[in-house]
């Protein structure tokens, strides 16, 4: 059952099994194989890895990256990139923490701050998309600028201080409270994955994303509203960052501008390691789920093996290079910018 589900989701076609499609097949399943292989190797080094407590810890660490990746994946599937995640998350985390009971503002709207954060995130995302499409600026430039502006905005609002959240039910419902010993954040991330999967499989936007990523000119000729789809997809991505912002604020109980540090890098690593191609059109949100767990398991494994934390970024960098180099379909590219 599980195999069927994952198999269908990763777009395995029975016909592809025949003959020369072997390497293609391998590419599709490589991320899963890598994840399983990693687990086995780390488990051999340190049997504690397979303990229930460690498993819950990893799930909890994976929650926020999962939510972020759900957003970035759609953008990458279109062949664009979103480098603004950190900035948008910072704005939304600061906004969320200012809207619940806190020591900075007098506002306390409790859990309504979550939809508010999602709304703010999607508005910033739409602005990203609008600038990118209407002014015809490459997405990496638009989102790079917006990301920095976002962190600047979050810092400027706070003047360099932190917001302390005093609303404990906000933190419980979003992050800390446990059901069956698993933190709430994990369930929320699970819902986010399902929502993203439904968008991908069951909506027109989801289908159009693949069409645009595969061949934008053809998609345009086929009558797909490419510009509108692009703007909406950036908006969807922003909505996921908004949720990630609220989750981050709930997790640490504070809101500040650097709350999302290094999140972007981890997200992009996870997505490409999961097998979604940066050139667009190939991949899935479920690939990103696998990717996130590869990164989290690796990080966890490095900690268990006693490797210095600062090495992680380097390992992530090498992972990006290796994953992209291995997965890249070179026949599709001639000029690489």
């Amino acid at each position: 059952m599980y195999q069927m589900f994952l198999g269908g989701a990763l777009r395995v076609k029975a016909a592809a099994l025949a003959g020369g499609a072997w390497s293609k097949q391998w590419r599709r399943w490589a991320p899963v194989a890598v994840l399983v292989g990693l687990c086995i190797i780390i488990g051999l080094f340190n049997p504690n890895f397979f303990g229930g407590a460690n498993f819950v810890r990893m799930l909890n660490t994976a929650a926020i990256p999962l939510v972020i990746c759900m957003g970035v994946t759609f953008v990458i599937l279109m062949g664009s990139i979103d480098l603004s995640a950190e900035g948008v998350i910072a704005i939304c985390a600061v906004a969320a923490s200012m809207l619940v009971a806190n020591d900075f503002t007098g506002i306390a709207i409790g859990l309504f701050s979550v939809p508010a954060a999602i709304l703010i995130g999607s508005l910033v995302g739409l602005l990203n998309g609008f600038i990118h499409v209407k002014f015809r600026i490459p997405s990496f430039m638009t989102t790079l600028g917006m990301g920095f502006a976002g962190i600047g905005l979050a810092t400027a609002i706070l003047g360099g201080v932190m917001v302390r959240i005093s609303d404990s039910s906000f933190r419980d419902y979003l992050s800390l409270g446990r059901v069956f010993d698993i933190p709430a954040a994990v369930y929320i991330a699970g819902v986010a994955v399902i929502v993203a999967y439904v968008i991908q499989e069951r909506t027109r936007i989801g289908r159009w994303v693949y069409a645009i990523g595969t061949d934008e000119a053809t998609a345009r000729n086929a009558g797909i509203p490419v510009d509108r789809t692009r703007i909406i997809v950036f908006g969807i991505a922003g909505a996921f960052y908004g949720l990630a912002g609220a989750l981050s604020a709930a997790q640490i109980g504070r809101g500040h501008a650097l709350i999302s540090q290094d999140r972007l890098f981890t997200a992009i690593t996870a997505i490409v390691v999961g097998g979604t191609a940066l050139s667009g059109g190939v991949g899935s949100v479920l690939n990103s789920v696998i990717g996130v767990f590869i990164v989290i398991v690796l990080t966890n494994g490095m900690v268990l093996m006693g490797i210095e934390p600062y090495v992680q970024k380097g390992v992530q960098g090498l992972l990006i290079i290796a994953a992209v180099a291995l997965a890249l379909d070179r026949s599709r590219l001639d000029v690489v910018k």
């Binding site: 976002g150 600047g152 400027a156």
Partner: peptide, 9 residues
């Protein structure tokens, strides 16, 4: 901090 916003734009 706010200067970052200006530079972004």
């Amino acid at each position: 901090f706010a200067q970052q916003i200006v530079f972004g734009f």
